[in-house]
Design a protein around this nucleic acid. Structure first.
Length: 156
DNA sequence: GCCAACGTTGGC
DNA sequence: GCCAACGTTGGC
């Protein structure tokens, strides 16, 4: 199957590109939205490319690249009452929530900001440039991926 | 901090 | 199954 591409949002106060760089690999846990869950469980595969996006900062934008290293498996934080992501409806038999693992690839020399993306021809239909787009895991088309790689190669 | 957009919940 | 009320996300 062909390699696919995704955009993963994270609030840097919660988990930043520097955290991923330091750890090398992480579980992408805590996603509690069914649309995103379905992608994590069914569609996101090892080798897929990930745009690491910082949200809820001024400006928001893409700060790095990562790669999926493990496909979907149950998000155990949903089973842990101590976790802030605990979900009392989740059980071993029906974990409800899923996560993948991602591996650090690179940190961009500087952020590709959301205004940069909105200005870029070819990204008009990209999900993250649409107003009100709150999904924390978003599919990225191969054309959008190529456009962004070209933007990255021109940074600095 | 505001608030628009969106998802979820629950009464009917 | 509809939809109002509520909660959350996230850009600004």
């Amino acid at each position: 199957m062909a390699r696919k591409f995704w955009l993963f949002k994270s609030e840097p106060d919660c988990y930043s590109i520097d955290d991923l760089k330091r750890h090398g690999t992480t579980h992408w846990d805590g996603v509690r939205n069914y649309q995103a869950r379905n992608m994590l469980r069914d569609e996101i595969k090892p080798g897929d490319g990930v745009l690491f996006y910082h949200s809820s900062v001024q400006p928001p934008g893409i700060v790095g690249l990562a790669e999926v290293s493990r496909s979907g498996y149950p998000d155990h934080t949903a089973l842990n009452p101590e976790s802030e992501h605990f979900d009392p409806k989740a059980t071993d038999e029906n974990p409800i929530w899923y996560m993948v693992d991602v591996r650090f690839v690179s940190k961009l020399p500087k952020m590709l900001t959301l205004p940069d993306l909105k200005r870029e021809p070819g990204l008009e239909n990209m999900m993250v440039t649409q107003r009100g787009s709150r999904l924390s895991i978003q599919p990225v088309s191969s054309h959008e991926w190529k456009t962004i790689q070209r933007m990255i190669s021109k940074l600095e």
